[in-house]
Amino acid sequence: MGFDPTTPKFVEALCIFYGLSDKRLEEKFNVYKRFGLTIDDVSELFKNCPTFLGYSER
């Protein structure tokens, strides 16, 4: 995904990504799609701030 494995951001991304089930991750992507974002947009956001996937939909 373009992360440098020597940075703390990489560790954050791993924690978020592996902390969510596949179903929950898909639900989160669907929420962002409803906001008009594409998968590429969500991937770019994830690269810049991996913790945003951990936020509540509310």
Rank of each mutant, 00 (worst) to 15 (best):
E12M: 04
P8V: 04
T51E: 00
D22A: 11
E12W: 05
R58N: 14
L45H: 07
E27L: 09
Y55P: 03
C49W: 08
L53W: 08
I16C: 04
D40P: 11
P50F: 04
I16Y: 02
L37W: 07
E44I: 10
K33A: 15
L53K: 03
R24M: 13
L20H: 08
F17W: 04
P5H: 04
S56M: 06
F35P: 05
D41V: 12
F46T: 00
Y32S: 09
F10E: 03
F10C: 08
G19V: 09
D41A: 10
Y55W: 12
G19M: 03
T51I: 01
I16H: 03
T51G: 01
Y32C: 08
D22F: 10
V11Q: 08
R58V: 15
T7I: 02
V11T: 13
L53A: 09
L45E: 11
Y18G: 09
E27D: 15
V11N: 04
G2T: 13
S43K: 13
N30S: 13
G2E: 14
F46N: 01
K9D: 00
E26T: 01
T38K: 10
M1Y: 03
L53R: 01
L25F: 15
E27K: 06
K47Q: 07
F52S: 02
F10I: 07
L53D: 05
F52E: 02
C15L: 09
I39P: 05
R58F: 14
E27T: 05
Y18E: 12
L20D: 04
V42K: 00
D4N: 15
D40H: 11
K23F: 15
L25M: 14
L14Q: 14
Y18D: 11
F10S: 07
S56Y: 12
G54N: 03
K9L: 04
T51N: 00
M1A: 09
F29T: 03
T7N: 02
G19H: 02
S43P: 00
